[in-house]
Every structure is written in C-alpha cells, then in structure tokens.
C-alpha cells in the first residue's frame, strides 16, 4: 500500500485487550518453537486480501494467520480445532466465562 492515496492518519489509540495480547504472545511462542516464521505470518495476512484490512481488526487477522500456519505445520488438525472451538463456545457467552474453569 506504500504510495497509495489515503486520508489523514487516524490518531485514536486503544489499549490492547487481554485476548489480543494473548494472540501476540502465541505468535511469538509459535515462532520461538519453530512452528512458524514471521514471513509465514505475513504471507497469510497478505493472502487475506485488502478486504480483510477493512473488515477485521489487527489481532483478528493475526489469530487467523496463526491458525493457518499451525494447521499447515500440522500442530493440530482442523477437526481438533473445530471440536475445541465448539467446546469453548459451550462454556459461556463472554471471553471471561468461555475460559476453561
């Protein structure tokens, strides 16, 4: 996107939510464990296309890329992820209550 026309730089800032910090931490840990590279992270982010930049937040894109990289690496399977996400959702309706007890 370097060089494209764009509006004023938005200056609002936010604190990161806990889940976002955890995504960041998991990406760092997965890299340190040799399960993915920073270029693998970026490659998936880029492959999401321009639309994702508008429709997903920064760490939403990161967690999607983290997942894609870990699936490709074989760290877990699609079925394992699907089952776990179902279980997580069954625990509660908020981020806090969906954690394992």
């Amino acid at each position: 996107m370097g060089g494209n026309a764009a509006e004023r730089v938005p200056r609002d800032d936010y604190d990161f939510a806990l889940w976002e910090k955890r995504v960041d931490a998991l990406v760092m840990i997965a890299q340190a464990a040799g399960l993915m590279t920073v270029d693998g992270l970026r490659r998936v982010l880029e492959d999401m296309g321009e639309d994702a930049f508008e429709t997903m937040t920064y760490y939403e894109r990161w967690v999607a890329s983290l997942n894609q990289n870990l699936l490709e690496e074989g760290t877990y399977t699609v079925a394992e992820l699907g089952a776990r996400m179902r279980d997580v959702r069954a625990r509660g309706d908020t981020y806090g209550t969906a954690q394992r007890g």
């Binding site: 889940w19 955890r22 995504v23 998991l26 997903m56 760490y59 939403e60 967690v63 999607a64 983290l66 997942n67 870990l70 877990y76 992820l81 776990r84 996400m85 279980d87 997580v88 959702r89 981020y95 969906a98 954690q99 394992r100």
Partner: peptide, 8 residues
C-alpha cells in the same frame, strides 16, 4: 476470533 484464540 476470541473463541479461536482460546482454542489455539
């Protein structure tokens, strides 16, 4: 996406 983070 939060649900995915917890699962991962």
């Amino acid at each position: 996406w939060q649900c995915m983070e917890i699962a991962i």
